[in-house]
């Protein structure tokens, strides 16, 4: 008899193990939910990890106020179906309260402002573990992340002084005021995520599938037209058949020309593409180390 599981089942098992470890080691964890496919995957895995019990932690959404409307609809429907608790940290409120200041100019984005709101929400809720759906294959700084990633009392990441992570033993010991970011799907690639979502027939926001939308081009990336982005005079809006490969804030998420109408089409597209999924993220393009710089300050 050959006892053998395929790579998708092994990744699933690893992620479930990490989630259970978080529930066991931390009194007050929270799952960071963005509405994107990776956080939908996270919720799906959490549901399996604790079934038939409810997911033993609330979901936290840091809302920039610049979401695709489809994201919010999907989020609310999902939360209701699961009977989960949703906490929303609002960037708009933080701007109104003058906790943060809105960026100006054509490339203005609320992406960086999310960090302050995230840290504030974690502190207010006294959360000592925040589960996130970041993956190591996404970006070079994320490739250096641990599953259990320590954050000091300022929410900062110290990439040069990370705890070694051996075997399946995860050290979540921490002082009061510090917290952990935990990344259960660290080892999944974009293709793994899609293969699994297809295999499990997981429901997804319509944004991932091709649709017609008003778009314009900036720095070689197609952006969805929205009231949240100031366009330069030469940037002309046109209609295009597109889909999102990642879903973030409307100001920094590029859309892709695509005819992929089903998950199977997407798998086909992902398996043959020559560009990484964050290739359309203008927030990563600010500098060579923009992800590392943001992560050090406490970004997702």
């Amino acid at each position: 008899m050959n006892y053998n599981i395929n790579h998708i089942k092994e990744l699933e098992s690893e992620s479930i193990y990490i989630m259970r470890e978080v529930a066991a080691q931390f009194e007050n964890p929270v799952l960071m939910f963005s509405g994107g496919k990776d956080s939908i995957l996270m919720v799906h895995l959490a549901h399996k990890a604790f079934f038939p019990a409810r997911i033993p932690f609330p979901l936290l959404h840091i809302d920039t106020g610049h979401n695709f409307p489809e994201t919010i609809q999907f989020r609310d429907a999902m939360v209701e179906k699961l009977g989960a608790k949703l906490i929303v940290g609002s960037v708009q409120d933080a701007i109104d309260n003058r906790m943060v200041t809105e960026e100006k100019g054509v490339n203005a984005s609320r992406n960086a402002l999310q960090t302050a709101v995230l840290l504030d929400s974690l502190e207010k809720g006294k959360y000592n573990a925040a589960l996130g759906g970041a993956r190591r294959d996404e970006e070079k700084a994320r490739a250096k992340e641990r599953f259990f990633s320590h954050r000091d009392e300022f929410g900062q990441w110290d990439p040069k002084n990370q705890r070694p992570e051996l075997w399946n033993i995860f050290n979540g010991n921490h002082h009061i005021g510090e917290h952990f970011r935990v990344f259960p799907i660290s080892n999944w690639t974009e293709l793994d995520v899609w293969q699994y979502l297809a295999y499990e027939k997981v429901e997804l926001p319509s944004l991932y599938f091709s649709h017609e939308r008003d778009v314009f081009e900036r720095d070689g990336v197609l952006l969805a037209d929205s009231p949240f982005i100031a366009k330069k005079p030469e940037e002309k809006v046109f209609k295009e058949t597109v889909r999102c490969r990642t879903i973030g804030d409307m100001t920094c998420t590029g859309v892709w020309k695509s005819d992929a109408k089903t998950v199977e089409d997407i798998i086909e597209e992902v398996a043959t593409t020559r560009v990484t999924e964050r290739g359309g993220r203008t927030d990563d393009k600010r500098s060579e180390t923009s992800m590392e710089d943001r992560k050090k300050q406490g970004y997702f």
């Binding site: 190591r136 070079k140 994320r142 490739a143 250096k144 990439p159 040069k160 060579e288 180390t289 590392e292």
Partner: peptide
């Protein structure tokens, strides 16, 4: 490709474990 951290790139050495897929 594998040296992802600023300090690794500056020094041209791998300091930490990098995971590639």
């Amino acid at each position: 490709l594998t040296d992802g951290l600023k300090s690794e790139r500056e020094q041209g050495i791998t300091i930490d474990v990098a995971y590639r897929y």
